[in-house]
Nucleic acid binder design. Structure first.
Lengths: 169, 169
DNA sequence: TATTGTTATACTCTATAACTATA
DNA sequence: TATAGTTATAGAGTATAACAATA
């Protein structure tokens, strides 16, 4: 049995395909910014000024905090961000954009927006807006700041903690 | 400068976040099927009966043909697919579902659809439909069967071929 | 005892190269 | 000469473990 017009109807396939194209197109439009599309997201998050510490940034991107060390090493070496000690908590570091980082972020954002719109070219303009809005809403609902997701994260951490303890015996 | 309500407005972030959640949720709902969400897509593509050979399947999923060997090895070992020589081209193999594979595919599809709808729970029902339709359309436009993408693929292959020749000197 | 950040290590995933058989 | 499929190898990316400093 085949589908009506041979059209693919798998959400997983569509997401994977779009994601792949997005990473390629975004990567090209961002030039050599350290970390590629992910590096850009770090800059953008820092630019929004709400996620000051490295763990917060890591959680926002859904990656391990060790990744953030490497990413920020590269961004700092490129002169785009600065790490300064947090006066309120001497374990933590406040991550901020340099002047150059702010300029670069604006350029990258502009370039990326153009690339994105081109990528979404198969959709009408109002559809692009609707798609973006729905994806934002979905992602917000899935992000670790969401209570439901927080519960899951906690569960995973607990499980990991238990595994860790078992190994240590 | 921060955005109005602190709401994330990055398409890359939204896509990455949704993709991550999708892979987790789909992976769980698919149980231990070889290859996880990707293995399911292989079964589904074979089930549609249009992509008989391994290269065609690989291209459909946007992976290297060597990946398909590994994936099909696992699916075959699990008794879900069969590889038979292609009578028209003795280099190629026709990949088909076994009876068990067909049954399993139906079960997986059902389970996955439920998980997907739950994942899209933040959207209204008509929005889910609209989102799916737009993602399908986008992915179709980006898929390698699309003329524009074929040109790009060809370009990449040519470049790879040139690199390969240079190395051989 | 838990958390932030770092480093070193190990693992997973995927692509590349090289090969055989066929076109 | 090019392609389908396989195998072996190498690389990128990522997570895990362990550590120091601080809470």
């Amino acid at each position: 049995m085949t589908t009506a017009a041979g059209v693919e109807r798998e959400l997983g396939w569509a997401l994977t395909t779009v994601m792949k194209s997005y990473l390629r197109v975004a990567g090209e439009s961002l030039g050599g910014v350290p970390g590629g599309p992910r590096g850009y997201l770090v800059l953008a998050a820092i630019g929004r000024g709400e996620l000051g510490t490295q763990v917060a940034l890591a959680q926002h991107l859904g990656v391990d905090r060790t990744m953030m060390t490497y990413l920020l090493d590269d961004l700092e070496e490129a002169g785009l961000v600065e790490r300064r000690p947090d006066p309120a908590d001497r374990r933590a570091r406040r991550v901020t954009l340099t002047a150059g980082g702010l300029t670069r972020l604006a350029e990258l954002r502009c370039s990326l927006r153009l690339a994105e719109e081109s990528l979404l070219g198969a959709l009408a303009e109002e559809e692009r807006t609707a798609l973006r809005e729905m994806l934002y809403r979905l992602a917000e609902a899935m992000a670790p700041s969401n209570p439901c997701e927080l519960a899951r994260e906690l569960e995973e951490q607990t499980a990991a903690s238990v595994r860790s303890r078992r190994r240590r015996r």
